[in-house]
Design a protein around this nucleic acid. Structure first.
Length: 589
RNA sequence: GGAGCGGUAGCUCAGUUGGUUAGAGCGCCGGCCUGUCACGCCGGAGGUCGCGGGUUCAAGUCCCGUCCGCUCCGCCA
């Protein structure tokens, strides 16, 4: 037996017992005659004290210990003494009222000096990744791994309670033409042919519904060969869920239960359900984003009405061209610097704006408003926006004028940047704003390709009120999908939809998307076929587990919650993958 | 594919308008210390300033190129 207790177990009530601990040397404080060793394992830290009068041999050996040596220490549990009326308790650790008075020390394995210190923050990402097994010893990383387990378990327990079966689907699967770039795997037994790694188990889970499983879930690894980001890895994990005979409301409440349980388990947070719902239209109009951060105000206000006949040609022409004029009021940000204005202008242009119109409201009187454009505004126009935007001294007003979609994007990004510049979210870490965005558009016209694409995916069911519009191409842009996203604090946690379960409607949908009969038969024949044999109405959702855990941990990159992530270029610096392979291996393909 | 920021000791960083032998903290090595917990004190080692080229009497510092990392845009049904 290696140990009698773990390193976060012993308390005052254990005083007098003999205990054996194993773990790593966290720190050594060598006072000459008395040596303190903090021994650390997964659970925590315990102080061990070595004195020559207790054990000459162990004490002699303890002088030679180095950080991260793996040791086994035996001794008597004692309450830490009071010296000259001063307590020697350490309130920073949970075992701080006791210590092990060591009588035995065994070095199980010596450690070289580490390439970095575990108790210091480290900014060198390559180094962390190269020695990820050491990086993961750091308390923050160890906590994140544990949190991921806790959340995953809460999810499994919750879905199990709701009657879901966990079922695995193939990793070696088939490439689908739509969507992200696939990772391909050559097939040796079928030369010239390839498997694709799944971007999501979408078709398999729908086929499980046809199979009569009724409620399926999977903690599913998914693969996409696209460029990486702080919240994107080439392989990532989704909580993939599908259920038969359910309405949208059923799916909402299933997920609300799951998310509430996850955050209770991980952060002891009380999440109230049902979550608020807003439509895609409302999200775009008010926040300029389909995954809005709502924890600060600064909502978008439409002021088109006031500028229809404006003397300011830029606004007037935008409205005449079928566009809109909208603005946000960045409260108290009149003191914006020229550098910041320049940055905001850049962001606006990146989002497609021609430029950035703004007003720095220096005082109550309109003639104190500092702005390159205000001289073109009439007194009525100034009064109207003052009222609509609730303009007060000290505010900064930012305008967008263009097509609706462009203005949404421009002002949506500007409000996030203003938030960033002003730290409006400071102190709001514990505020959890969960909500649903509903009624997404079903189709989106791709100008470059000159064709309609599915906003969600081609299996998404049209909104029941809009099905008839599928027969009128001029109105395809108006069709809403029975699709929904769940958002937390401006992050998309996941999205899903009710699916098409009728073969004829699915075929019609493929036709709308420009997938011809031959292609349908080749790529989707199995699912169209399956729908002919009694497919139940069904729907589902997929949640990004990495992102969920990231938010629960308060991290800002999913790399911090994945044990062995890839870097920006998709490489694993520890194992040096991807790597070249032997000619022999290639030849066998 | 594009933009921004960064690369100086094992780690985190400083390094002025180009100017002596490139510094600090932590870590490491040696010594001292019987109540520390970021232990303390004394001493010491440790650098091709990412790499290549250029300007200059002189480059960590300026210029060009290149590699690597991070962030963002594009992309991610």
């Amino acid at each position: 037996m290696y140990r009698t207790h773990h390193c976060n177990e012993l308390r005052k009530s254990d005083a007098g017992e003999t205990a054996t601990l194993v773990g790593w040397v966290n720190t050594k404080r060598d006072q000459g005659g008395v040596i303190f060793i903090d021994i650390r394992d997964r659970e925590g830290v315990t102080q061990c004290v070595f004195r020559s009068e207790e054990s000459a041999e162990a004490t002699e050996l303890s002088h030679k210990l180095r950080g991260e040596d793996v040791v086994q220490i035996t001794g008597k549990v004692e309450v830490r003494p009071e010296l000259d009326g001063e307590s020697t308790f350490n309130e920073a650790i949970q075992t701080g009222e006791i210590e092990i008075v060591a009588t035995g020390l065994k070095v199980l394995n010596k450690a070289e000096v580490l390439p970095f210190q575990l108790d210091k923050e480290l900014s060198n990402e390559d180094l962390r990744m190269k020695y990820r097994y050491l990086d993961l010893r750091r308390p923050r990383m160890a906590k994140n791994l544990k949190m991921r387990h806790t959340i995953t378990k809460a999810i499994r327990d919750d879905l199990d309670d709701q009657g879901f079966l966990e079922i695995e689907t193939p990793i070696l699967s088939k490439s689908t033409p739509e969507g992200a770039r696939d990772f391909l795997v050559p097939s040796r037994l079928s030369p010239g042919k390839f498997y694709a790694l799944p971007q999501a188990p979408q078709q398999y889970k729908q086929l499980l519904m046809v199979a009569g499983v009724e409620r399926y879930f999977q903690i599913a690894r998914c693969f996409r060969d696209e460029d990486l980001r702080a919240d994107r890895q080439p392989e990532f994990t989704q909580v993939d869920v599908e259920a038969s005979f359910v309405t949208q409301e059923d799916i909402y409440s299933m997920m609300e239960s799951l998310l509430a349980r996850s955050f209770k388990a991980s952060r002891d947070a009380d999440v109230s359900a049902p979550f608020p719902r807003i439509t895609y239209q409302e999200a775009m109009d008010k926040y300029g984003s389909d995954k809005p951060e709502r924890r600060f105000g600064c909502e978008i206000v439409d002021v088109s009405e006031h500028f229809k006949d404006s003397g300011f040609g830029v606004f007037k022409r935008a409205i005449e061209g079928g566009g809109v004029v909208r603005a946000i009021n960045a409260k108290g940000f009149a003191g914006v610097s020229t550098g910041q204005i320049k940055r905001l202008e850049e962001i606006a242009k990146e989002a497609g704006a021609g430029g950035l119109a703004y007003i720095q409201v220096r005082g109550a009187a309109h003639d104190t408003w500092r702005s390159p454009i205000v001289k073109f505004f009439s007194e009525e126009e100034l009064a109207a926006i003052e009222k609509d935007l609730n303009i007060e001294e000290g505010d900064l007003i930012l305008f967008g004028c263009d097509k609706w979609a462009t203005v949404c994007d421009v002002l949506g990004r500007l409000r996030l940047e203003c938030c960033e510049m002003n730290n409006w979210l400071e102190g709001k870490d514990d505020e959890l704003d969960f909500f649903w965005v509903t009624d997404f558009p079903l189709l989106d016209f791709d100008e470059e390709e000159g064709k309609w694409n599915a906003v969600h995916h081609p299996f998404t069911r049209p909104h029941p009120d809009d099905v008839a519009l599928l027969d009128d191409e001029s109105r395809w842009g108006e069709i809403r999908g029975a699709a929904y996203d769940v958002i937390l604090n401006g992050n998309e946690l996941g999205g899903g939809s009710l699916r098409i379960h009728e073969a004829d409607l699915q075929a019609k949908m493929f036709n709308v998307l420009g997938v011809d009969d031959e292609e349908q038969a080749e790529n989707f024949g199995h699912i169209l076929g399956a729908f002919q044999y009694g497919a139940p109405p069904h729907g589902g959702i997929a949640l990004g587990l990495d992102r969920l855990v990231m938010l629960a941990c308060g991290e800002d990159s999913i790399r911090e919650v994945i044990a062995f992530p890839k870097n920006n270029k998709g490489s694993d610096l520890m194992s040096a993958s991807p790597a070249e392979v032997d000619f022999k291996q290639l030849r066998e393909l």
